[in-house]
């Protein structure tokens, strides 16, 4: 059950910023992650500032340059079904439609999806783990079949739960943030914090900062995007292995490749090795094989998640073959 908290519903964004800055406040947007975190005492705020009524932070709009600006309060369903998103970045719509369950997509927001807390069962459970201020990551020696194979540095082995962040990162999107010190923008690729930098933080946002919207640069000619998510059941589940692809194609040649994994690492995991193996090449069987090997070359699997290495390879192979088919069509 939820602990006691006071609830504040500002009418304006500046009120919200002031309220969040003051005291140990937490932001309520859709609330789907927040309420769970309060219930599990992961977030110990006694003050909830609800921005859900700030309608100006909701909706998708085309920018003058031809990119998209998506309000942070846009629901996941809103993104998945938005005609502009579907046309310009089908991979983003695919990712959004794979999030959680229909009801949670109807309620959860883009901002919340980017800022959600990890789903590690030790972190969410009654285990005083490193990320919660304890002195051990239980998952390293424990039940780690759902955990990270990259970027954990044996410090904290959570996987980042977001489906939209990998796609946005691959697209070079930026989050617009407003806070007590003013506004700033942060590349989605730089938004999340690896354990080696700070094991207690998931994002680089300061207390009091609110994501107001996400800017996605205009799609370059020949852009192919996709998102794939392998999971233990086909609804309401986080990725065992997932991949966002943003490939800029010139005929059958890949000019530029962004490949970002979900279910792989404590942050959305950019596979520079795979990108390098792919860039400049055609999507031949040989290239695909090399890319898949490169993608998992640096993996550091744990006792129970060695399967992730072949799973990432296999899933990526399938995705690249799909991309090849699509380009031929």
């Amino acid at each position: 059950m939820l602990p006691k908290f006071s609830y504040i519903r500002p009418d304006k964004l500046d009120q919200a910023v002031a309220q969040i800055q003051a005291g140990n406040a937490a932001i309520h947007a859709g609330g789907t992650d927040l309420l769970g975190c309060l219930r599990e005492r992961i977030i110990k705020s006694e003050k909830i500032v609800s921005i859900s009524g700030l309608e100006k932070l909701r909706g998708v709009r085309e920018t003058v340059e031809g990119g998209l600006r998506i309000g942070a309060l846009t629901t996941i369903t809103g993104m998945a079904e938005d005609p502009l998103v579907r046309k310009k970045y089908p991979g983003l719509a695919m990712a959004a439609s794979e999030v959680a369950s229909p009801q949670l997509r109807n309620q959860g927001t883009l901002g919340g999806n980017l800022c959600q807390k990890p789903r590690c069962w030790y972190y969410r459970g009654e285990f005083h783990c490193l990320r919660k201020g304890g002195n051990q990551c239980y998952a390293i020696e424990g039940e780690n079949q759902f955990h990270a194979i990259f970027g954990h540095d044996n410090i904290c082995v959570i996987t980042h739960p977001s489906d939209t962040a990998p796609v946005l990162s691959a697209l070079g999107a930026k989050v617009q943030v407003i806070g007590p010190g003013g506004g700033r923008n942060i590349a989605v690729a730089d938004l999340h914090v690896p354990p080696r930098d700070d094991v207690r933080a998931e994002t680089v946002l300061d207390q009091g900062e609110i994501i107001t919207h996400v800017d996605i640069p205009p799609p370059p000619a020949g852009l192919y995007t996709s998102y794939r998510k392998v999971r233990a059941r086909r609804s309401w589940d986080f990725a065992l292995a997932g991949a966002a692809l943003a490939l800029v194609m010139d005929g059958d040649r890949v000019v530029r490749a962004s490949i970002v994994f979900s279910g792989a690492a404590p942050v959305p995991w950019r596979s520079r090795e795979a990108e390098q193996a792919l860039a400049g090449n055609t999507l031949s069987d040989d290239t695909i094989d090399k890319v898949c090997r490169a993608a998992t070359a640096g993996a550091k699997p744990l006792r129970e998640n060695r399967y992730k290495v072949p799973m990432f390879r296999g899933m990526l192979e399938e995705e690249l073959r799909k991309a090849r088919l699509q380009e031929k069509a």
Binding site: K12, G183, T212
Partner: peptide
């Protein structure tokens, strides 16, 4: 939203408050 908001904020200007 742009330019970024820089004016000092008044704490009493809060909207609706429901105490815990």
């Amino acid at each position: 939203l742009s330019p970024p908001l820089r004016r000092p904020l008044k704490a009493e200007d809060v909207g609706t408050i429901f105490p815990a």
